[in-house]
């Protein structure tokens, strides 16, 4: 398995603010990697350094084997970038725009197929100005993938989406991942990371505070479970590695129904909130 992105000791400072304070990352080719973190945590700065939009202060960065500080046309043609916000090409139609951008790449996909893939076939003749926010975002994705990229960056792609649009968008991204595109995604939404990502990194205060699969992040899978019940007029609880056994013992003790029994493990959100509060 080859490495798509390799980062060692990355730092970036804006004036007095240390935006990125020494980040290491390895993103494997073909995986969906999510970078989570609150606003101002340094995730956009990190991603923009990987995309070649910003220069770094120190550290080593290799993206598809190239240093993004020395971008080449050939390297750019292997990347796809979906930016956070854009209101450009408003007067061109969807089809004109996708076709025009296809001309930039040596190995572009078929524009009509890409328009179909992002679900805009019936809007292909419409001017981009006339599209809804979600449809506009689909155009952004179409322009991100038209060059048949090996690596696709998605910066907070579903911000402002309604739940249905978000679910459709996930299907779209899932389909791309299935075809082997490496995807680097930044997001605020934990459910989005959980649904899409093979691995996630949580960034806070310019550092990676946790990294792993969503289901095991921050020791989530192995964390003690909390078993809680009602007994002798008060709420009791027990943190345990073996909640099933505890429940079984309680069942015997109460000879049947355990009053107000709950068993909980930390949700991704619990883990995340703990992680991002720690360094502050």
């Amino acid at each position: 398995m080859t490495t798509a992105v390799r980062v060692r000791g990355l730092t970036k400072r804006y004036g007095d603010v240390q935006a990125v304070g020494g980040i290491d990352l390895d993103i494997r080719a073909g995986e969906v990697f999510a970078i989570l973190g609150p606003n101002g945590a340094g995730k956009s700065t990190t991603v923009e350094i990987l995309e070649g939009y910003r220069t770094r202060d120190t550290g080593e960065v290799s993206v598809l084997g190239i240093d993004p500080d020395k971008p080449t046309r050939e390297w750019r043609s292997r990347l796809g970038i979906v930016l956070q916000t854009a209101d450009d090409v408003a007067e061109a139609t969807v089809r004109e725009t996708v076709r025009h951008f296809a001309g930039y790449y040596p190995d572009a996909k078929d524009p009509d197929e890409v328009i179909e893939q992002v679900g805009l076939t019936d809007k292909a003749g419409k001017r981009i100005r006339q599209l809804s926010g979600g449809q506009r975002r689909r155009v952004d994705v179409a322009l991100g993938v038209i060059g048949n990229p090996e690596l696709l960056f998605l910066d907070e792609p579903t911000t402002g989406f309604d739940p249905e649009a978000r679910r459709q968008f996930w299907e779209l991204i899932g389909g791309l991942a299935h075809n082997g595109t490496t995807i680097v995604l930044t997001t605020h939404y934990l459910d989005e990371a959980e649904a899409l990502a093979d691995r996630v990194a949580v960034v806070a205060g310019g550092l990676i505070v946790a990294e792993g699969e969503p289901k095991t992040l921050g020791g989530r899978a192995t964390a003690k479970a909390k078993v809680s019940w009602f007994d002798e007029g008060e709420r009791r609880s027990l943190e345990t590695d073996t909640p099933t056994r505890t429940v079984l013992e309680l069942t015997r003790r109460f000879d049947g129904e355990v009053p107000e029994l709950t068993v909980t493990r930390p949700s991704l959100e619990d883990v995340y909130l703990q992680l991002i509060e720690a360094p502050a």
């Binding site: 040596p106 190995d107 899932g174 299935h178």
Partner: peptide, 23 residues
């Protein structure tokens, strides 16, 4: 949305990098 995407790490879903010879 990952659907039937294989979960294992050794999947073969990375295609050969396309040739980008002619810009």
């Amino acid at each position: 949305p990952r659907g039937d995407r294989p979960v294992s790490e050794t999947v073969t879903r990375t295609p050969a990098p396309p040739l980008r010879t002619r810009q």
